[in-house]
Design a protein around this nucleic acid. Sequence first.
DNA 1: CGTTCTTATGACAGCGCTAACATAAGGCAG
DNA 2: CTGCCTTATGTTAGCGCTGTCATAAGAACG
Lengths: 333, 333
Amino acid sequence: MPPIKPTLTDVARLAGVSEITVSRVVRGKGPIAAETRERVRRAVETLGYVPNRAAGTLASAASLFIGVILPSMHNIVFPEVLRGIYEGLAGSPYQPLLGVTEYNREKEQEILASLLAWQPMAIITAGSDHTETTRRLLLESGVRVAELMDTDGDPVDLAVGFSHRQAGYDSGKHLISRGYRRFGYVGHDWDADRRARFRYEGLVAALAEAGLSLAGEVHVDGPSSAKAGTEMLAKLLGAAPDIDVAVFVNDDMAVGGYFHCLSAGIAVKDGLALFGFNGLDIGQAIPLPLSTVRSDRFLIGRIAAERIIAEPKRPAETAIVDTGYEILEGATA
Amino acid sequence: MPPIKPTLTDVARLAGVSEITVSRVVRGKGPIAAETRERVRRAVETLGYVPNRAAGTLASAASLFIGVILPSMHNIVFPEVLRGIYEGLAGSPYQPLLGVTEYNREKEQEILASLLAWQPMAIITAGSDHTETTRRLLLESGVRVAELMDTDGDPVDLAVGFSHRQAGYDSGKHLISRGYRRFGYVGHDWDADRRARFRYEGLVAALAEAGLSLAGEVHVDGPSSAKAGTEMLAKLLGAAPDIDVAVFVNDDMAVGGYFHCLSAGIAVKDGLALFGFNGLDIGQAIPLPLSTVRSDRFLIGRIAAERIIAEPKRPAETAIVDTGYEILEGATA
DNA sequence: CGTTCTTATGACAGCGCTAACATAAGGCAG
DNA sequence: CTGCCTTATGTTAGCGCTGTCATAAGAACG
C-alpha cells in the first residue's frame, strides 16, 4: 500500500526519462520510440501510477467533462436518455457529470453553476425550460449546449428531440380519425413539466379543430405512476362517466388506467379507449399493447453526445435535430 | 459575453483585496469582515466569476467527487439507488461521478481506473463482484469504499444492503409455509448478476430442507423485462405444466408472468401462484398486488452516501449495514 | 557531405487555486 | 501602556500536469 500517490515525476525518474515524455506516453500523444514507450509503461505499471486529471485539466484548460442535467430519476425515461449519452460517449475520453433537478428550475440553475465550475466541454440538459439566469449562463459559458427532448423552444446551441405540441396534436387527430369523440384527460402536475403541457395543448388544439373539447380532466399531485393512473382514471370516470377515450400524460399513468379497467370490468377500447405517451416497454407488455406515441429516448441521448463530440466547438448557427416519434396503434384505442 | 473567463485574480483586483481573501469569501472559510465580504460578493457578481474546481482540487489535494459505479440503467432499480445517493449527498459539496458497467467486470475495472484519476474522496459501487485488480485498486486507493446491495461478500470497507441468499431462502420458506410444493423458477442470465444467483441458491436450499426441489426452470438470454417474463412463463408452463408456484428473478419478470396468466386465462394464485423480487411500484399497481420481497434501494444509496460524508477517512474496521427486506404477502401467492 | 526534414526528447513556465505561515491592527487585562 | 490575544488580511510557495519552444540525432536529398 503506497503511502503516497506516485506522480509523473516518480514515473519519469524510474523510467529514466523526462516528465513530459511520460505524459506523452500516457496520453498517447506525440512521437515516442517504441523502446521508450515500453520502459515508461513498465514504470507506470510498477508504481501503479494513476494520472491526476485535476492537474491535467488545469494545465490544458480543457476538461473531459460533459455536464448532464436531467429532471428526474423517478421513472425509466431519463435513465434511458442517460444510457444513450453514455453510448454516444463510449470510446471517447469524455466523462458525464450528472445533476438531477427534480423538475425545479432554480435547482437546475444551481446545478448548472456547480457543473460549470468543472470547466466542462459541453452541457447536455433535458431541463424543460430555464430561468433567465440559466439561459444566460448557458449562452455565456461558450461551451457546447445540447437541449434534449423537445424542440418547441428556441435553442441556445443544439436541440435534439421532437415537437411535443405536434405529438399531442397528432395524437388527437389520430384518435378523432378512429371515431372517438368524448375525450377525457389524465395528467399530472405540469407546472414543472413543460413538455406535458405542450402535448396537452396540441391535443386540445386538434379537438378544437374538430369542434370538440375535453369532456373531463384530472391531474394528480406529485409524480406520475401506474398507481396514480389507476386512481386518477377512477376519479375521471366519476366526474365524466360517458367519455369514450382517456388520454394519459404518459404510459406509466396509462398502464395504471388499464389496470383500473381490468379491476372495474371495463372493456378496454370498446367500453373505454386508452392512449398513452412514451412507448415504454411495460405498455407494450400488457395483454393489450397500449396505444401510444413512441419516442426514442436512447437515440436522443446518443445523438446529442455524438454531435457534441463531432464538433466540440460551439458553431455560429443553432441547430435542431428532429428525432421524430411514431404513433403506435396498439390495441387499447 | 466575456472573451476570457475571470479568475480569482480578476475578482481580487476589482474588489481591491488579495486573492486569498476572495478565495475565503467564496468558500465561506475563515474570518472575513462583513464589509469586505460584501465588496467581494459584488465583484464576483459583476464579473460572473465561476471558481475553477480543477485548480481548487489540485491546490487542496481534496476533490469533491464521489465515484459511483452502477451495473445498469435498464430498469428502475439502480436509478433509485442513484436517487438515494443524491439525496444523501444533498447539502454537501460532494458531486457524484457516475460510471455504468453493463454488468461487466472488466468494464467495471476500467471505469474504476478512470474514476480514480479524478481523485475521488470515495467510491460507491453496486458492482456485484469484482476482478482481482478491481479489488486491489479499491483497497489501495485508500479512499472510502461502499459496496452496495448485497452483504454476502467480504467488504473492502463498508457494505450496505442485505443478504440475497437469505432473502431467497426466506422466500422459499414463506411459500412452503403457505402450502406450495411444486416450484418453477424463471430467471435471466446470471453469470453477470451474482445477487440473482444468491437468491436462487437460497431458494433451492429452503426447498431442499423441505425435501423439495425445483420442478422446472427457464432462463431468458439478455436483460429481464416484463415481456421476457410473459414469454418465459409460457415456456416454463410448457415444460412443467403442473407447478403450483412460479418464482421470478425479479418483479419485472413476475409482472410479465401475471400478464401471461391474464391472457391465458390462468387463475393467479389458485391456479398458479406468482412470486417476485424487488417490490417495484409496478408490481404493487397491478390488480392483484404482487407477492414479492421489498428492498429499499433508495435507502441503500442514501445510507451509503451519509455514512461516507459522516466519516470521510477510511476507518480501520470494515462495516456492514443491513438495510433488511420485507416479504410482501401480496395477492398472487 | 552540407542542408533540410523528420523523429524523439527535454527545459521551462504557468494553469487557478489554496495551505501555511506571516503580518497588522485593534482590544483589553494587569 | 506593555504584552498578549483575537480578528482580518496578505505573502509565498507550490499542487501535478501540459503547451510551447528548443534541441539533438538521424534520414533523405541533391
